[in-house]
Amino acid sequence: MESGPEAFAGAAFALFGAGLLLWTGARVRVGAPVAEGAGRAVGVATGVGFGTLFLATGCWLLGAL
């Protein structure tokens, strides 16, 4: 009963993190800006950093089930 919200949160975090990493990679590949108004290196670092953080959190939550 208590694992339902944890599974939902884990799946949401993991999907968002994976999507953010894929989106950042696609933007870098075509040479488009990752974040509007930020430098290229800052945008890529922020996207990769937060994508990895969200993906790791989702995997941690799903692994705790």
Rank of each mutant, 00 (worst) to 15 (best):
V28P: 05
G43V: 01
A56P: 07
F13C: 08
A12M: 11
G51V: 04
L53M: 10
L53Y: 09
A18L: 11
A18K: 03
V44W: 00
P33R: 08
A41F: 08
G58W: 04
L62N: 02
F8H: 12
L61M: 11
L22T: 04
A26G: 07
T24E: 02
V44L: 06
F50Y: 11
G43Y: 02
A9R: 05
E6P: 04
W23V: 06
V42R: 15
C59T: 13
F50P: 03
F8G: 09
A64K: 15
M1W: 07
F8P: 03
V42W: 15
G63H: 10
E6H: 14
F8A: 14
G17A: 01
G63Y: 09
S3Y: 15
R29A: 12
E2D: 14
L53A: 13
T46R: 13
G63V: 06
E2T: 10
G31L: 00
F8R: 11
L15G: 09
A35I: 15
L62R: 12
R27I: 00
A7N: 09
R29G: 03
G63D: 13
L55T: 04
W60A: 15
G25N: 07
G51P: 09
A45K: 05
F54W: 12
V48T: 05
T46C: 14
S3N: 14
W60H: 14
V42S: 11
R40K: 14
G43W: 03
F13T: 00
A9N: 03
T57V: 15
G25H: 05
V48C: 03
F54N: 04
W23K: 14
